[in-house]
Design a protein around this nucleic acid. Structure first.
Lengths: 343, 343
DNA sequence: CTGAAAGCGCTAACAT
DNA sequence: ATGTTAGCGCTTTCAG
């Protein structure tokens, strides 16, 4: 764009050496021996002329563009999307790569078009990311390519997956309650996310519930109730209000998302119930709002930054990309919404 | 990546024509006349072989990579970042372009490195974006290049800027209050954002205040007080609580961000004041939380999607990029936090 | 209407 | 230790 760039030929000419020599010193290769003086002359000429390599031209020979594509259904709209992008960007930049971001908006047709657009620009690999943790069947355009799956699983497809460790997050949540002495009156709000409206193959809820049940069982406890509802603040409010109205007296709420917790806080407040004394709340996600709530919400953070970073590191790590599933730890944000009963 | 791609030479050979002919039909050019039969043979061969052009190789001759770079200080972390990216992506894809996203994290050194990385890959243009609406001085690497400034202004730098129309948003906010009969007891929380800690050159607050003052003056009204504080929920809570404790009796709050409004709601609730009856609240930004609050928050939305889209459209629109400032309308989200006094 | 040939900026055999 | 040359996949002038 704008103005002819100085080429390697320009540098070679200015330095009084052949393009070959210039190429060797500029790409810092040592397998061909170059004299001190040539070395210096080339570097100096490059500096003076402000030489910069044309990565695309180079890639024509080397078949590597130092470029990664990240396609997703709607990653930029989701609250944490920025974090996976940021993780990916950081890891890429640390390895002198750049990343194309592409978003399909869930449109099957756009998926194909975007992947082609990426491939046409010779990306070294593509990260295929999903907004919800769920099972997918990767587009055929991706078969046989260097791919990493992000926040989704594709059994039978030969590529690594990077997903949050939901099972363990469930365990940590339950353990926290048990350690606080909250072993009865425990309700799970949001549950398995097993609703008619829920897209096929969503499994985050199931995994969390598995971890939760496992720990509660070991502690000789269990769930008083599981409310299957959508993972938003409105449903959180409505459903918690409903069970309260129906006479339930929960002592602890395990909310599937911070949005549900937000709604739950409102319903609890209206019923004159205090958090964490009357009802303790443990949540998942760690959206911004979790720290704004009063009392601040204890929650297990979706490790989106680490997921983005890990995906890129797998690609650039040099290891072959096999179908391993990488479960990324969901860190506990221990805040103020859990206490001993009445405490 | 993986497996040799089929080249145009392959297509030409399969179709029994020269590379030239293949090139002409595959790029759909009509200035050279090609026979019906050659035309058809080439297309058919391309289809059968699954030919896809190598955009990078092509760009070597055409000097266009159909690629845009978007650099920002920390766009991915900011709540709406996703929206500007999404706007940019949509506009780019509609024109068969792809976009590199790069983030500097505010590090001066990284700015230079990232812009070089972008330029080395021959992007057709770069969008330089800022998290806060403020004045900047563009990095020297960008001088003389095709550039669009996003959410920032750089007087003297020859590139268009795309920013939110804050002045008019201020007018709309004030007008709403006046129309609801809220002409006294109006406080601005957040104000000009003129704090010691605020980075130099931030001007969104100033512009809003200008619009607000202008309309209130015309209505024979004015502000009872302006609270300069940070634009977050904690400060919103603390400052509103403070003026309440000091005996102020506000009838309307103009909050600089939804986060401030969130804090204000808490302080108001604690003081037993109802929204919108006792105190009406008008806000700016339209974060997710605005619609979750009860009553839902009336706010002027930061037009991030449109800003991203506009920036790309300027680049691809064919018009030369002059130093025009494009002010994008901030749409009103008219919800439930404003009413007539006592209403 | 079509093809041969040069060249975009760079790398890599192969000579020297 | 360095230069010559070919070629990556594509476009484009110029001949035919």
């Amino acid at each position: 764009m704008t103005g002819r760039r100085v080429t390697m030929a320009d540098v070679a000419r200015a330095a009084g050496v052949s393009p070959t020599t210039a190429s060797f010193v500029l790409s810092g290769r040592t397998d061909m021996r170059i004299s001190e003086s040539s070395w210096h002359k080339v570097l100096e000429a490059a500096r003076v002329l402000g030489y910069r390599p044309n990565v695309n031209a180079r890639s024509l020979r080397t078949r590597s563009t130092q470029t990664i594509g990240l396609v997703s259904d709607s990653i930029t709209t989701t609250p944490f999307a920025g974090e996976v992008i940021r993780g990916a960007l950081d890891a890429a930049y640390a390895n002198e790569h750049l990343v194309f971001i592409a978003e399909t908006g869930g449109d099957r047709h756009a998926v194909s078009g975007l992947i082609h657009a990426l491939l046409d620009r010779q990306v070294d690999a593509v990260i295929f990311a999903a907004m919800y943790t769920h099972y997918i069947t990767p587009p055929t355009e991706l078969h046989g390519r260097r791919v990493v799956l992000l926040n989704c699983l594709a059994p039978g497809f030969d590529a690594p997956s990077v997903i949050p460790d939901e099972v363990n997050a469930g365990r940590v949540a339950a353990r926290l309650l048990v350690e606080a002495g909250r072993t009865e009156g425990i309700w799970a709000v949001g549950g398995h996310q097993a609703l008619p409206a829920t897209p096929e193959g969503v499994f985050a809820g199931n995994e969390r519930m598995r971890g939760i049940q496992e720990v509660l069982r070991e502690a000789g406890s269990g769930l008083d109730g599981v409310i299957e509802c959508d993972w938003n603040s409105e449903d959180g409010y409505r459903e918690v209000r409903r069970i309260l109205d129906e006479g339930a007296r929960p002592r602890a709420l395990i909310c599937s998302t911070d949005r549900i917790s937000f709604g739950a806080y409102q319903a609890l407040a209206e019923a004159g119930l205090s958090v964490p004394g009357d009802v303790s709340v443990i949540s998942f996600d760690d959206q911004d709002i979790a720290s704004w709530l009063r009392p601040a919400l204890t929650t297990l953070a979706l490790p989106h930054y680490d997921m983005g970073r890990t995906a890129v590191e797998l690609i650039l790590g040099g290891e072959p990309l096999d179908a391993t599933v990488h479960r990324i730890t969901m860190p506990l944000r221990d805040r103020e919404s859990i206490s001993a009963p009445g405490g």
